[in-house]
Amino acid sequence: MTTRLKAACCAACLVLGSAARAQSDPEQKLPLWEIGVGGVALSTPSYPGAGQHETRVLVFPNIVYRGRVLRADRSGIAARLFRSDRVELDVGFAGALPSDSDDVDERQGMPDLGPLAEFGPRLKVKLADFGDHRSLRAELPLRAVIEARGGLHHRGTTFEPRLTYEIAGPQGLWSLEAMGSVVLGDRKINRHFYEVAPQFATSARPAYAADAGLVLSRLGLFGTRRVNQDLRVFGYLRYESYRGTANRASPLHVKDSGVSGGVGVLWTFKRSAARARGGESL
């Protein structure tokens, strides 16, 4: 998913898995589940190529589940289909918040962007293990996008090949991830964000038919720091480039780059006595 909608939800989801992996120790079994609460303040472009930023403060449940098949972590909820030392395949869900077009100058008078959900397979491959809790992995998620606004509507498909370098401190005291990805969308999802139908055209916003192709290129950093057993702080910074994208000519495309970031806290107040036996995610 490509807009601030995903940034708002996934900033929260990102914490869950990264904090969980930062706690991992090959000599120690982790709790089967953990429950808590978190909060994050973030600022992000209204959508890729928008001329405006929006700021949000979110409070979200912190739920981690490490089952053999069912997993709940930074990527949402997923059913693991296959796992080896270097390869993992799952089918997962992820969600995103709605966007009010009246809050975005370029979309004034156009339909709102409703809540979105993603569903589909994801292949994860560990490319290298450098020791000392340092690794490089590739992720290949292919997701159908569903909008929940006046019913359920299929809004297209996205593909986001991603490389992630991860390093963790001793005993999970801290963790840092650096990642790079590109987001590709079919014509349907690009129409959802960039098309201007004739009835919404104005003198400053001509009609436009969107094409399939590149949506954005992305570089990001994400880090966590453990304050004590139950409390963590985290932050992220993300740069996105919209140069050379398939719909740069859209009147809804105003800027060629965007920066988002956020800081927050994660508190765990309950964890199971039972230990996970399914192995950590890659």
Rank of each mutant, 00 (worst) to 15 (best):
T2G: 12
L5K: 03
K6F: 11
C9K: 02
A11L: 07
L14V: 01
L16Q: 01
R21V: 01
R21Y: 05
R21L: 05
A22V: 04
D25E: 02
E27T: 03
P31K: 02
P31S: 05
E34T: 02
V37A: 00
G38H: 04
G39P: 02
V40E: 04
A41R: 02
S46T: 14
S46C: 15
P48N: 13
P48T: 09
Q52T: 12
P61G: 00
I63T: 02
I63V: 05
Y65H: 00
R71M: 10
A72R: 06
A72D: 03
R74L: 08
A78S: 15
L81M: 14
E88F: 00
D90Q: 06
V91N: 01
G92Y: 08
L97M: 13
P98I: 12
P98S: 14
P98M: 14
S101Q: 05
D102S: 15
D102F: 10
Q108Y: 13
L116M: 09
A117W: 05
G120N: 05
K124H: 09
V125T: 03
V125K: 06
K126G: 06
D132P: 09
H133F: 07
R134F: 06
R134C: 15
R137H: 11
L142I: 08
R143W: 09
I146K: 03
R155G: 08
G156H: 02
T164F: 08
Y165G: 15
A178P: 06
L184P: 08
D186E: 13
R187D: 14
R191C: 07
H192C: 05
F193Q: 00
Y194G: 06
A201P: 06
A201N: 08
A201I: 10
S203Q: 13
A204N: 12
R205I: 10
P206T: 09
P206F: 07
Y208D: 03
A209G: 08
A210R: 03
D211R: 04
A212C: 12
L216G: 10
G220T: 07
F222E: 04
F222Q: 08
T224D: 10
R225G: 08
N228Q: 04
D230K: 01
F234Q: 07
F234H: 06
L237I: 05
R238Y: 12
Y239T: 04
G244T: 09
A246Q: 05
N247Y: 00
R248S: 15
A249W: 10
S250T: 04
L252Y: 09
V254C: 10
F269I: 03
K270T: 04
A276M: 10
A276H: 06
R277H: 14
L282A: 10
